[in-house]
Design a binder for these strands. Sequence first.
DNA 1: CGTCTCACG
DNA 2: ACGTACGTGAGACGC
Length: 874
Amino acid sequence: MTKKKIVLLDGNSLAYRAFFALPLLTNDQGIHTNAVYGFTMMLQNILEEEKPTHMLVAWDAGKTTFRHKTFEEYKGGRQKTPSELSEQFPYLRKMLKAYNIPQYELDQYEADDIIGTLSHQGDKEDYEVVVISGDKDLTQLTTDRTTVFITRRGITDTEKYTPDHVVEKYGIQPHQIIDMKGLMGDSSDNIPGVPGVGEKTALKLLKEYGSIEEIYASLDKITAKRLNENLTKYEETAYMSRDLATIVVDAPITISIDDLSYSGPNMDELINIYQELKFNTLLEKLGGTPIEEKQEDVEVTTVTEIDESLLSNEMALHIEMMDENYLRANIEGVSLTDDSRTLYLPFEVVQKSDTFQTWLKDDTKKKLCTDSKAARASLARHGIDVNGIDFDLLLGSYIVNPSTSSTDVASIAKQFGYTNVQQDETVYGKGARKALPESDVLAEHAGRKALAVWHLRTTIEEQLKENEQFDLYHELELPLALILGKMESTGVATDKEALAKIGTELSARITDLETLIYDIAGEKFNINSPKQLGVILFEKIGLTPIKKTKTGYSTAADVLEKLASEHEIISHILLYRQLAKLNSTYIEGLLKEIHEDGKIHTRFQQALTTTGRLSSINPNLQNIPVRLEEGRKIRAAFVPSEEGWSLFAADYSQIELRVLAHMSEDEKLIQAFKDNADIHRSTAADVFGVDVDEVTAEMRDAAKAVNFGIIYGISDYGLSQNLNITRKEAAQFIDTYLASFPGVKQYMDDIVQTAKEQGYVTTLLNRRRYLPEIKSSNFNLRSFAERTAMNTPIQGSAADIIKQAMIDMDARLEKEGLQARMLLQVHDELIFETPEEEIEILEKIVPEVMEAAIALNVPLKVESSHGKSWYDMK
DNA sequence: CGTCTCACG
DNA sequence: ACGTACGTGAGACGC
């Protein structure tokens, strides 16, 4: 006979856990689903891992319980359940019903008591019992047959309490946990306990005396004066607190454990609920399918010859490629529509059609597309020009809401209520099974995308106009796409041999370090594995772990630096890490990305970041090392593409702080920039109350960190981590800073308030970011949204400024008839390649254009440099 | 595929 | 009491 196993779940506690662990998800009806989703994930996990024969979810019943008769204020002072959570309870119950999992609640009793009673029964009747909750109180139920799982961070991760684990963790037996609670109380349940007694004292007392009774019997042996006084004074409270914390094991339940057998869900019902809640991943796991949006039929004609009569003055087009990297991908074909007819042109047809290519090039023929940069850059590789692009779905939807990270036409379209197009993944498959479909399927897919673009234009443009963002979209992002496309196609010449040579030297040093580290450790292990490294450092060598991660010991650099004086191995590991990173990411990684033309062609993602910045991928050229000399040498491999040319760079000095000065209108900050002061030094002088020339290097460093903190939406904890000082000292710094810059303080308060009122924040050019979580009752989510409200206008406005500068710069280069080309943007810096004879002109016009991009009430300052490689720029 | 670590602004 | 600095991308590991 198979052993009987019952799983008992604390419904309210787990729902709370799931709710707070996950961001607020909603289904298409606007109903919040995060608690149901989290609960379901947890349930799914438990079913798979524990394979129970019996199950129950216990719920708290109503407001009052028998405990309130003992102590009126029991669970007093609790925040009431957020409505976003309470609205989810009916769905939770429905979901559990579909699982065929019994649910039970009992008037005057809490879920704990139901669980306690049943686990007690199960224990006696030879069941294996598993109790699952987010509340550590339940660990008192632990026995040889009852294991208590307490959720850890996240939702599916649990800590498993067996009697051994309780002893190991607390040094007391499970039955003593109620004595511990009695002594220390529980603030979340408003159980008082004995004042001045926390977990540590409670455990110490119990280890020595065993129980509250024994403690009071030996009260005269407790010599600590305050403790003795408090114990004496609060004896009654201690006993009452223990009673409150004691879970009932004989509640008058009307069910019996044998009624709770579990034999699996009702699949149809479950699929229905998942569909209603839009739990698509869970649906697929069950073998169900998400509700297919009905796709209207479309007629897509594949053409082999283009006639002018097929082309009109305004059409949507889509360049179909299987690989998302349009700088390398094969073009399969081009779809075209003006809604009267939809065409698909296999790429061979495009290539040999002068008629079509002339149409593409004609500026007066307007084109609508998604990702105009990809369209232009991919065709440019085949010498085909596209002009007259007047709508870009990707950019438009990004400006409407930068937080929705979809790039696929189908997902974008769906956000705007258009469902007549399929996901790329549906058509091509994913992972190893990704492949080209039949040509008619491909033609239809590409045709549907063009149709989606055509139909969404009005919707999106109207919304942009309504939000006063049409200019940002049409005069900034759209022209910028063209410029970025040119930069990507131009690429950056890379000296392969130089990279390889640095790589050889690095490899040799890495091998030496490996040998040395193995030698010191006394064994071989994988230094790149944080897990293995943790075992060596904290178990074998016995260093003290400073920080933990979800999965074990943290071995991050800041942790290792604190341990450096403890053991010689640390410095070698830090160096190894540094060199290994350089070798794998920057030597091997970059070598793989050099195209046949000897250049690296990064792609700038223009519709990705939530703040309006660009990002750079395949490879990322915005994070090439610079801070440490070892890494900085990598930059020597980036060179001009032509003989007699140089690289030229220009960067904004302190652009984000200048934006802050402008937006906050803080007089002192504005004056400092008008005086062209060293801003960190002048901040230090203010914060430390000394003269500018009395500021020490340490004071300047601290002020610099505070300045960064202000930009990031400061918190005392964050600053304390950064400066390696106590939280209190950090808080003091911040107070002094804000007192010294009252305009900044006012701005920070105002922006958070504005975000709460209107639901979003904006930048100089009216870029928006929505912050729904700023109203969350979850402290973490809310705090994060508040910091974002402070940071996004600053970071985003700086992004606006450099984007405008790029557009102006491109026009200026053209106007001056210069050969110099823009190659890269690194957030506050532009990099060009240029014939040497143009350097002098660039030194004049680049700062001029960048400084004039957008007028602020402080001057913008740009510094430039040039050299024979990215390393040599001075 | 998620986690950790680390490179940049 | 909570558990954090803001914004990114990539490589290695280990399930």
